[in-house]
Write a protein that binds this DNA or RNA. Structure first.
Lengths: 138, 138
DNA sequence: ACAGAAACGACATCCATTTTCATTAGGGGA
DNA sequence: TCCCCTAATGAAAATGGATGTCGTTTCTGT
């Protein structure tokens, strides 16, 4: 049968690399780039090809298992394992990169009306917040 | 004296290229990429080096004369001459690229409290909205 | 165990953006 | 107006993230 839809966060097949990637991604406290993740894997002796990291992250993104943002500074795409199934927004420290989920109920409610407000359909939103965390501020 | 701060939207010097770039950028109805702008200039016989376009846009961005977003599809940076001095948000048609300013008062007010809500300082926000405009929807 | 397909990984390629560096040309001061 | 200094320009090369290629490896259902 070809219609077996996978339900795991991994791809169709459970490979060592995919496992390692998911594990290290989950362990990362903050958003991390594909290259950063690749480096971190290498540091711990876990050898995974860079393309494989990119592919795994792309698949995780498709499976909505990660949140993705764009680094303001480098333009890199940064990934973070998603904890809840809801879509989330974060404040990111522009110095150290630390991130923290923010309650965006108000914005979400507002966003829900956007179709009426704008005359556009299927409006989706991306919200990125950056600031300086307490440790970095002084 | 070396402290002469320029007050024009252009750089320190008023060159033909800078003038043309600003003019074509202002004429563009929607967000446009550096390459797109460069191509548009070339089409009208206005020869400007690609690096020059990039540099002019970078300077305009620094001078807060343009709004900048990131194309979801291509990852390019897209620029648009800023009309008001206030910072603006837009809905962008994910099919044709048409953009339209959106009233985001509610979000702005919420954003003003972010410092208190999050424990981060100097929090800035970026909000990108995409949907399908009426012409493209059906 | 087997076969077919998915995943790997080293490397090539793409493409937006930046940098280099020699040349050109604003524009303030004499 | 003429000069000079330096910002601005542009062609070409470099950078760097991300994706594609393709031969090889390795899951997984049968």
């Amino acid at each position: 049968m070809s219609e077996t839809r996978g339900t795991t966060p991994l791809g169709a097949r459970r490979t060592r690399q995919r496992l390692d990637i998911l594990q290290h991604l989950s362990a990362a406290p903050d958003f991390i780039s594909a290259q950063g993740l690749h480096a971190r894997l290498a540091q711990t002796g876990t050898l995974v090809g860079l393309s494989t990291v990119y592919r795994a992250l792309r698949d995780l993104e498709r499976a909505e298992q990660v949140d993705v943002i764009r680094s303001e500074a480098s333009g890199e795409r940064l990934y973070r394992r998603r904890s809840t199934s809801e879509h989330q927004h974060y404040v990111i420290c522009r110095r150290c990169g630390r991130s923290e989920a923010v309650d965006t109920d108000i914005v979400e409610r507002w966003a829900a009306h956007l179709d009426q407000l704008t005359g556009f359909s299927n409006v989706t939103h991306t919200l990125e917040l950056s600031g300086e965390c307490m440790d970095c501020h002084l």
